[in-house]
Design a protein around this nucleic acid. Structure first.
Lengths: 201, 201
DNA sequence: ACGTTGCGAAACTCTTCCGTATCGAAATTT
DNA sequence: AAATTTCGATACGGAAGAGTTTCGCAACGT
């Protein structure tokens, strides 16, 4: 070998622009964030918004679905740092993160797409769930299981069911909030307190 | 007046086919039920599926959005007959209806559309909410308020919050069920019992 | 220097579909 | 019978956009 290798053999010619790639992904998420559905999303619009040629897109992704899948998958879920003191406080923090993030139009639209187009693009959905949703549900399940061990929660709790109740309630309210856009700051706390205590007299 | 009137003065000429109208609405819901988003839905596909000419559609609706709005609005929500004995049983019955109806692909897809395209088609969304969703939430709220009066539920309950917890939890599980399609028959009962009792030890 | 590959831009073909118009046949009122 | 309206079918012009190709230039290796 005479080449100066840096791990992998670099092919000859001009290397692909990392900047262009970022711009394409960003433009895609941008347009989705403006309320576009996948079928309304056009490669030409993405190229124009990103300031690149269509060739540059097709050189990397063979079609629209592949591109959108990568774009959605690039949304990492930053799970918040938890105090770890009480289940109640940790869960409020987790729901609060959900609420604050859904305040951004982009997040809401991405969620809409992931939810509603999951039938049409199952692979896309699976990728998104794994990258963006599962880290959060895993964090919630961990909190719940800790509570069962410490005795803060009932020992016979079904964690999947309890997770659904907490996250599902939050989602329900986030959906309804689209009209004016703001929910009370203490909503996460009220949800958690209600769910922990129960509705029965 | 010399005409044989039947309430309203019928104009001369061949009357519009009631059957064609039904077929158009049905074809629209059918295609939506096959996973098509509104923007993917084409008038030509609807006409073909309904076995009518495009003219027959455009004579009745001036564009796609009007047609879809009417189609979605035609989905009445049949609120089940409630026993009215206990809040617990009535609520299980309501959630059970949600679950069984969401077993139909058409219902799921219609829900998806209503949820996700609400930003793009706000009037459509409003119409759908009023016709198909509000009757159900109203029934749930009625059950909750009855429970507060009878003492079966806490008197200081926030009904909107409690509604969100019950319906939101059910929705959460319905979303996850897409993979294989079936949820345990006793899921509604387990949800209600868990929510009423609370998660805390 | 030179070959190779990526770049943005533009032109291109092909398909889909909207909304309108036109046709002969059918249904209904007068 | 005549007039009117709807029917399904088909054709049309136009817009949009997918995916490909070509072009001249830029960036990288040898």
């Amino acid at each position: 070998m005479t080449t100066t290798e840096t791990g992998t053999a670099r092919p000859a010619g001009r290397p692909r622009s990392e900047k262009a790639e970022k711009a394409i992904i960003e433009a895609t998420l941008d347009l989705i964030g403006e309320g576009m559905g996948i079928s309304e999303l056009s490669i030409e619009a993405i190229a124009s918004r990103a300031g690149v040629g269509k060739t540059t897109i097709y050189r990397r992704w063979s079609n629209k679905e592949d591109l959108v899948a990568d774009a959605l998958a690039s949304l990492k879920a930053p799970v918040p740092q938890l105090a770890g003191v009480s289940v109640r406080d940790d869960m409020v923090a987790l729901l609060d993160t959900m609420m604050r993030e859904s305040g951004h139009a982009r997040t809401r639209c991405v969620m809409n797409i992931a939810m509603s187009e999951s039938d049409r693009y199952p692979e896309l959905f699976a990728k998104f769930m794994k990258q963006a949703v599962e880290p959060r549900t895993a964090a919630m399940v961990a909190v719940l299981e800790r509570g069962m061990r410490t005795g803060e929660l009932r020992a016979d709790l079904e964690t999947r069911l309890a997770l659904g109740t907490l996250a599902g309630t939050m989602m329900w309210h986030l959906k309804r909030a689209k009209d004016d856009g703001d929910l009370p700051d203490d909503l996460p706390a009220r949800i958690v307190d209600n769910v922990l205590r129960g509705l029965a007299a």
